[in-house]
């Protein structure tokens, strides 16, 4: 073997070869670039500034949900309630605004409501020892039911202009007034949801990689019994992950409802599947211990761009579901292959 005769070269090669996790992320990134390339060819409007911003906006909701989902999946669990919690949080914020609360405290209340739903999930899973699938399936119904009951299933509208800023505003937006009195958008700016997503992603990555709680989340998902025997409070780690998932679902709910300037109790159905898909496409393993924020971001953009690109190409919503279903199965299949001994 040439390896044996050149040990130094062998080691350099080995350190340069990416690990399995990096390989998965790389292939996901490649898929993302291929998608962008393909859709750009199919529709010239796809790469326009306006459409790029639309993608950013759409992806930010999936991304926020996906980050919380990633934390939960790393612990070896799953959170099926995020779509419903998103709706409940938006409704709570909307109702708070309606009774006269300013927008920022109202939104804070919505996020806290999401966090409480997550805390309930965590309590049921760690104390009552109910499997995450069942516990969060229950919360999926509970949160949706509360949202519908509170509103009588009717959307809450006329929430005022300030309520719409988070979802529709943008940083560095340049607008000039033309002589005829109509505004002209010179640069549409970076949408606030995209900025929010970036901040949350950096914060979550920092928590997972540089803080003890993040290390313990990975250890819990990798080998729960070993983590427990090593002195890791596995119940706290799980609780933390579910609270984060709930609170981020609440944040995503506020972004979405703000964008519609309406609190919709029936919003967010099946969003949990987009979030799970984003995490899994990004390399998170459903058996726990593996996953990361950067991968999930790539996954969220793949889902967001798939939906947007298929829309632009005039593909029906039904066909879109079929395509995304196959993409998720494909991503998990690739994961299986790479983990096969």
């Amino acid at each position: 073997m040439s390896d044996a005769s050149k040990p130094a070269g062998f080691y350099t090669l080995k350190t340069l070869t990416p690990g399995a996790a990096q390989l998965h992320k790389l292939s996901a990134l490649l898929t993302l670039l291929l998608l962008v390339f393909g859709f750009a060819l199919a529709s010239p409007a796809f790469l326009s500034v306006n459409n790029t911003l639309t993608v950013l906006l759409q992806t930010s909701v999936i991304g926020l949900l996906g980050i919380g989902m990633t934390m939960v999946i790393i612990t070896g669990g799953i959170d099926l309630s995020v779509g419903s919690v998103l709706a409940l949080s938006g409704v709570i914020t909307g109702m708070s605004v309606k009774v006269g609360l300013p927008v920022v405290p109202a939104m804070t209340l919505g996020v806290i409501a999401g966090g409480l739903c997550g805390a309930f999930n965590g309590f049921v899973i760690t104390r009552l020892r109910i499997p995450p699938f069942v516990a969060t399936l229950g919360m999926m119904l509970i949160a949706r039911g509360i949202a519908l009951q509170l509103t009588g299933a009717a959307p809450i509208s006329q929430l005022g202009e300030a309520f719409g800023v988070l979802g529709n505003g943008a940083l560095f937006r340049v607008v000039e007034m033309r002589e005829n009195g109509f505004p002209r958008v010179v640069f549409p700016g970076i949408p606030y949801p995209a900025i929010l997503l970036l901040i949350v992603a950096i914060g979550a990555a920092y928590l997972l990689r540089r803080r003890q709680i993040g290390r313990h989340i990975y250890a819990t998902g990798s080998n729960e019994e070993a983590a427990r025997l090593s002195g890791v409070r596995v119940d706290s780690a799980k609780l933390y992950a579910y609270v984060m998932s709930g609170a981020l679902a609440g944040l995503a709910g506020n972004v979405l409802m703000s964008r519609l300037v309406t609190a919709q109790p029936s919003e967010g159905v099946m969003y949990e599947l987009d979030a799970i898909a984003a995490a899994v496409i990004g390399g998170a393993s459903l058996s726990g211990g593996v996953g990361g924020v950067s991968g999930t971001m790539i996954g969220a953009f793949i889902i967001g761009i798939l939906r947007n690109g298929l829309n632009m190409a005039g593909v029906s919503a039904f066909i879109q579901q079929i395509v995304i279903g196959f993409v998720v199965i494909g991503a998990v299949w690739i994961d299986q292959i790479r983990n096969r001994p």
Binding site: A219, G221, S222, N223, L229, G289
Partner: peptide
């Protein structure tokens, strides 16, 4: 304690 199972987190 050194456990028979070693109690190691495999992914770390």
């Amino acid at each position: 304690t050194i456990y028979q199972t070693l109690a190691l987190a495999d992914h770390l």
